[in-house]
């Protein structure tokens, strides 16, 4: 077994079907720093996954169950050799106080069937440094590099984390549950603006038809104000009962149609290019922020004589002069 250091060997093992090697590679991707950079370098030239699907929604709407069903349906069993066709990355928040996390999405993925058919990895958000936009893009590249065709990224519906999904996924599915006011809550949370598809889960419950109608009305109202991620794609509103599997095949078909539309209109490449620019920009800001922090920490007593603005400008000049 290749321990740690050698990404090429691990990539080869994972491509041949080693779960352990793939698990280790994602740990490296998650850990950031020089080892993650080395891994990223080793993957240059390898293909990414064919399709990245994001699933967002508030806690309790049945996201994980839905994810499990979609993943099992997409996998349709296991290839004779090599890595599974489908992988899931499930992101949960870390405790802001201790950095720890309880990652429970695996057990929520009912209907996933044989755990060997789909590669499932739980990730903690690990706070602002990195977060969804940090480790997930590298992990997605790893999965694509070893032969995974479809990656489903599921994120917990807390605040900004779920909106970062647009910087990761090709197709975003926003899940709601049937109930009074859920559509309004989703709208307030900004879900409608990132969603390519909307799904009302637990549709066997009272209120499902109301939620669908509310969403359609909001979309109607939104066409005038460019609601929705793209003006020529109107997000379809679907219903599912994920626990029973009802409507899941239809949801997958609709998501597939979105992917076909992205390709036909040349948007898939553009979205990916935008995401790459976003990642480069975010990393550049991280680098600069780090340098600024170091220089601010090193400021001498003379800084007391300057105004904060003057001192800040001096820091910026130093950073510019010191850069390569």
């Amino acid at each position: 077994m290749s321990e740690g250091g050698a990404p090429d060997a691990l990539l080869a093992e994972a491509t041949a079907g080693s779960r352990r090697a793939l698990g280790r590679l994602i740990t490296i991707a998650e850990s950031g720093g020089p080892s993650a950079d080395a891994l990223d370098r080793a993957m240059v030239g390898r293909p990414g996954p064919g399709w990245i699907v994001g699933i967002v929604g508030a806690p309790g709407v049945g996201k994980s169950t839905l994810t499990g069903r979609l993943a099992a349906g997409a996998a349709g069993g296991r290839p004779a050799e090599g890595a599974p066709r489908v992988a899931v990355i499930a992101v949960d928040p870390s405790s802001p106080l201790t950095g720890g996390a309880i990652l429970g999405d695996r057990i929520r993925m009912q209907g996933l069937g044989d755990p060997r058919d789909v590669f499932v990895r739980s990730m903690a958000h690990r706070g602002a440094a990195g977060g969804l936009a940090g480790a997930v893009p590298i992990a997605v590249r790893v999965l694509g590099a070893v032969g995974v065709e479809v990656v489903i990224v599921e994120t917990v519906g807390v605040g900004q984390i779920e909106l970062e999904i647009v910087h990761v996924a090709d197709t975003v599915i926003a899940a709601l549950s049937a109930g009074w006011g859920d559509a309004i809550q989703a709208s307030k949370a900004g879900l409608l603006e990132v969603a390519d598809l909307l799904v009302v889960n637990k549709a066997d419950r009272h209120g499902a038809a109301d939620a669908v109608r509310d969403l359609e009305q909001m979309l109607d109202a939104g066409t005038a104000t460019a609601l929705g991620p793209d003006e020529t794609w109107r997000p379809p509103v679907l219903t599912t009962v994920a626990t029973a599997g009802t409507g899941v095949a239809e949801l997958w078909t609709a998501a597939t149609a979105h992917r076909a539309w992205l390709i036909a209109t040349d948007r898939l490449a553009r979205r990916r290019d935008d995401r790459r620019r976003h990642e480069i920009g975010r990393r550049a800001i991280d680098i600069l922020a780090h340098e600024v922090d170091q220089r601010v920490a090193a400021l001498g007593p003379t800084a007391a004589a300057a105004t904060p603005e003057e001192a800040a400008r001096r820091v910026v000049r130093q950073v510019r002069a010191g850069g390569d």
Binding site: S95, L97, T98, G100, I102, L103, R106
Partner: peptide, 16 residues
Amino acid sequence: IARSLRDAGCEVVYLG
């Protein structure tokens, strides 16, 4: 134990 380890900074993959 899951809560305790979380509060000690661990990432707990809870299989249940």
